[in-house]
Design a protein around this nucleic acid. Structure first.
Length: 476
RNA sequence: GGCCCCAUCGUCUAACGGUUAGGACAUCACUCUUUCAAGGUGGUAAUACGGGUUCGAUUCCCGUUGGGGUCACCA
C-alpha cells in the first residue's frame, strides 16, 4: 500500500500502433518518480479516437513497457469506457454557464477560419453562438439542431509552477473557446484527460513538452470543474540528428525497432533515462535501482535532446560485455535459428566469449557467432574488400602459405598455442610480416577485419572447416 | 503570424556567483598484443551575441539572434 498522500502519476498513450521512444521515456520518468516516492503509477490508454484504436495497437504498447521493465500499479484503463462521465462533466459546465451550446457545423467553422483576417492560423472562435438569445437556443434545440458544447474560456491569468520549467504564465484571452463535447456527444481530448485525471486522483502530470499549450486549457477546466489542479511537469522533446522532432524519417523511433536491432532492455532503459535527465554526477551505466534512487524532477533538463544512436550502441555493448555467455546464449538462439544456422551440440560458450566484447548489439553478436559456426556464410565487409584489394596477389599467396603451415597440425595439435607457433614460424621462414599472414586468414574466415586473435579464431572454427575454407580462398 | 518554451564541446551532460569550465559518446594520437578489435593513456573540442547587476558572471535581469512547440467537433 502506498503511504497516504503519496503521488499518483500516470502514463496515457494513445494506441497508434507503436511505442515511440519519446513516449517510452515519459513513461520511464513517471515510473521512476512513482518508485522513488512510493507513489502509484497508473496506465491509461487514450482510445477516444475509436477509428485509430485497436486491441493489437494497445498490446504493442503494453509489450514495449514490459520489455523495458516498466511495471504499472493500476490499469490499463481505457478512456473510451468513461464517455458517460465525460458527458456528465460537459453537461455540468453547460448548466453552470461555464460552457455553451455551439450550433456552428464543422463546415461553418471552416469557412469562418478561411475568412479570418490574419489567416487561418490566427482564427479564434468569435462566440457568435454565445450571443444567441435563450429563445433562439430553445427553438434550435427543440428543432433537433445538433450542437457541440464549447467551453467559455475565462479572460484571466493562468499560471502554474512547472516541475521542470518553473513558473509558466498564460492569459485566458489568448486562448480559444475549445469544444469539449462533439455534436455526437463524444468527448474531446482536453476534457477527457482532465475528467479522467480528476477521477483517478492524479497528483502529478509528467508529459512531453508538446503538451505545454494544452496545460492552460486544462487548468481552466480543472478550475471550472471545481477540482484541485495537479502538479505539472513538461519533459523536453527528443530530436533527430538534424535537430527536428524525432520522427519516422529519422529511422527507428519505436522501442520495438530497437528490440529487433538487438538492443538490451536494460541498456535502452539506461540510455533513455539519461536523455534529458542526469544523476548530477558522472555516473552513466546505472541499474534500475540506482536510477530510482537518484531520480528527481528537479534534475530533468529543460532543453530538448538529440537521440544519439551511436551512444546507445556503445552503452548496449557495455551491457553485453558484462553479461556471461550463458545469459547471452538464449538471446542469440532465436536469431541463429532464423538465419538457418544450427550449432548442433557444440558448446556455444567459447564462441560467445570470443565475440561478445567486440559486438555492440545482440544481432551483431549472433551474426558473428553464426560465421564461426559456419564460415561459408561469411559475407565480405567493405573493410575486408579493402584489405584484399590492398594486398593484391599477396592475399591468396599468403593464404597458401598459411595452409601449408597449418595443415601438418593434427586435430590434437589444433590449439591456440601451436597454431600461433606454426604461423609465427612460417612468418620468420618466409620473411613475411605476421600481420600480412594473419589478416587474410581473418578476412577469409569471417569476411571482416575484426575478430578475436586469429589463432583463437581458428580454434573456434575448427580444424577441418578452417582448412577447407582457407584452401578454397587461397585458390580463389 | 499570435502565444509559449529553450540556448555549455559535433552529441548527451556536470558546474545551483569565485573551477585550469568536469565527465561520457564520437573523433585523433599513443599503448598493449611480433595479428584486428576491446581495454588503458593522452589530445582536439563548448558557455550564441549585446547590454546591465556585482569586487567577480556559464550561473541573476533585459534585449537580439537562433532553434523548438502549439494554435481542430485529432490525441
Amino acid at each position: 500500500m502506498p503511504p497516504p498522500g503519496a503521488p499518483r502519476v500516470r502514463f496515457a498513450p494513445s494506441p497508434t500502433g507503436f511505442l515511440h521512444v519519446g513516449g517510452a521515456r515519459t513513461a520511464l520518468f513517471n515510473w521512476l518518480y512513482a518508485r522513488k516516492t512510493g507513489g502509484t503509477f497508473v496506465l491509461r490508454i487514450e482510445d477516444t479516437d475509436q477509428a485509430r484504436s485497436t486491441e493489437a495497437h494497445t498490446q504493442v504498447i503494453l509489450d514495449g513497457l514490459r520489455w523495458l521493465g516498466i511495471s504499472w500499479d493500476e490499469g490499463p484503463f481505457f478512456q473510451g469506457a468513461e464517455v458517460a462521465r465525460h458527458q456528465r462533466d460537459a453537461d455540468r459546465l453547460l448548466a453552470a454557464g461555464q460552457a455553451y451550446r455551439c450550433f456552428c457545423t464543422k463546415e461553418d467553422l471552416e469557412q469562418q477560419r478561411a475568412r479570418a483576417p490574419g489567416g487561418a492560423e490566427t482564427f479564434k472562435y468569435d462566440r457568435r453562438c454565445l450571443r444567441l438569445d435563450q429563445a433562439e437556443i430553445d427553438r434550435r434545440v427543440a428543432a433537433g439542431q445538433p450542437y457541440a458544447i464549447r467551453f467559455l474560456m475565462p479572460a484571466e491569468e493562468i499560471a502554474w509552477d512547472d516541475a521542470v520549467h518553473g513558473v509558466i504564465t498564460w492569459h485566458g484571452r489568448d486562448l480559444d473557446d475549445l469544444v469539449i463535447l462533439r455534436s455526437n456527444r463524444t468527448p474531446i481530448y482536453n476534457l477527457a484527460v482532465v475528467s479522467d485525471d480528476i477521477a483517478m486522483g492524479i497528483t502529478h502530470v509528467l508529459r512531453g513538452d508538446d503538451h505545454i499549450s494544452n496545460t492552460p486549457k486544462q487548468i481552466a477546466l480543472y478550475r471550472a470543474l471545481g477540482a484541485s489542479v495537479p502538479r505539472f511537469g513538461h519533459v523536453p522533446m527528443i530530436l533527430g540528428p538534424d535537430g527536428k522532432k524525432l520522427s519516422k524519417r529519422h529511422g527507428a523511433t519505436a522501442v520495438g525497432d530497437y528490440q529487433h536491432q538487438g538492443i538490451l532492455p536494460a541498456a535502452m532503459r539506461n540510455f533513455l533515462a539519461l536523455l534529458g535527465w542526469s544523476p548530477g554526477d558522472d555516473r552513466e551505466i546505472m541499474t534500475a535501482a540506482e536510477l530510482i534512487a537518484a531520480f528527481s524532477l528537479e534534475a530533468i533538463q529543460k532543453k530538448a535532446a538529440v537521440f544519439d544512436f551511436t551512444k546507445l550502441e556503445w552503452m548496449n555493448g557495455q551491457y553485453l560485455s558484462a553479461l556471461p555467455a550463458a545469459a547471452i546464449e538464449p538471446l542469440i538462439r532465436p536469431a541463429l535459428a532464423s538465419m538457418g544456422v544450427d550449432p548442433g551440440d557444440r558448446p556455444m560458450g567459447p564462441i560467445i566469449d570470443a565475440v561478445k566484447s567486440r559486438a555492440r548489439t545482440v544481432t551483431q553478436l549472433a551474426e558473428r557467432a553464426a560465421v564461426r559456426i559456419d564460415p561459408t556464410r561469411a559475407k565480405v565487409e567493405p573493410k575486408g574488400i579493402a584489405l584484399i584489394e590492398k594486398m593484391g596477389p599477396k592475399y591468396r599467396e599468403n593464404l597458401g602459405h598459411a595452409v601449408t603451415a597449418l595443415s601438418p597440425l593434427g586435430s590434437t595439435e589444433w590449439t591456440a598455442d601451436s597454431i600461433l607457433a606454426a604461423i609465427k614460424g612460417a612468418g620468420e621462414r618466409l620473411e613475411i610480416k605476421l600481420a600480412d599472414l594473419m589478416q587474410p586468414i581473418r578476412v577469409a574466415l569471417t569476411g571482416d577485419t575484426v575478430s578475436e586473435p586469429v589463432n583463437e579464431l581458428l580454434v573456434a572454427v575448427g580444424r577441418t572447416t578452417a582448412l577447407t575454407v582457407l584452401e578454397r580462398a587461397a585458390r580463389g
